[in-house]
Structures are given as structure tokens and as C-alpha cells.
Amino acid sequence: MTMDKDEIIELLTDELADQLEGVDRDELDPNLSMRDFGANSLDVIEVVTAVMRELDIKIPRSQLADIETINGLADKFDEHLD
């Protein structure tokens, strides 16, 4: 799948906006963490699972757990797409 990092960020923020009620998609700053917008751990699992399925990749959760921001997640996903 060819997809650049901006498109991955868009996927992440789309999924996050779908997951969280009352959050405007445009206010989702990728330099912040999903938790900053009120996501709980179940929300994060849902979003990450949906995006990895979309990208057709599977990265161990233990490698994602310490990544702080949406941007950092996109970088990690991007590595696995190259």
C-alpha cells in the first residue's frame, strides 16, 4: 500500500474522531496524544487496531505502548509500510 505519513495521520485522526464523541476532527493536533483528547485505553486499542487493519500491518502492541503522540504512531506505522 502506498501511503505517505500525512495520509497515515489523516487515517488516525479520522478513526479517533469516529471513536470519540464530541470531538471535532479539526482540533486533533497530531503532536498530542490520543489521551489528550479524552481517549481511554480501550479507545486507543480500537483506533490502533482499525488503522493497522487499514494499512495491512501488524506491529506488536508492546512496541507501541510507550509512543506518546499521534505523530509518533504515524512514524512507526510509516516504517512498517516502506
Binding site: R53, D56, I57, K58, I59, P60, R61, S62, Q63, E79, H80, L81, D82
Partner: peptide
Amino acid sequence: VKPGAKHDPLTPFHAMSDFDATDYS
């Protein structure tokens, strides 16, 4: 799991040349 190691959930792990089970939980 090296860059480029994509995994289709329906593809058994052994099809992934660099799969290491201990990476997963």
C-alpha cells in the same frame, strides 16, 4: 519485525520471513 514486514491477519505468521513470536503479546 523489519520495515516492510507486512502482516495480513489471515496469513499465518510462518509466511513472514522475519516473524519472532516473542515480539507479540
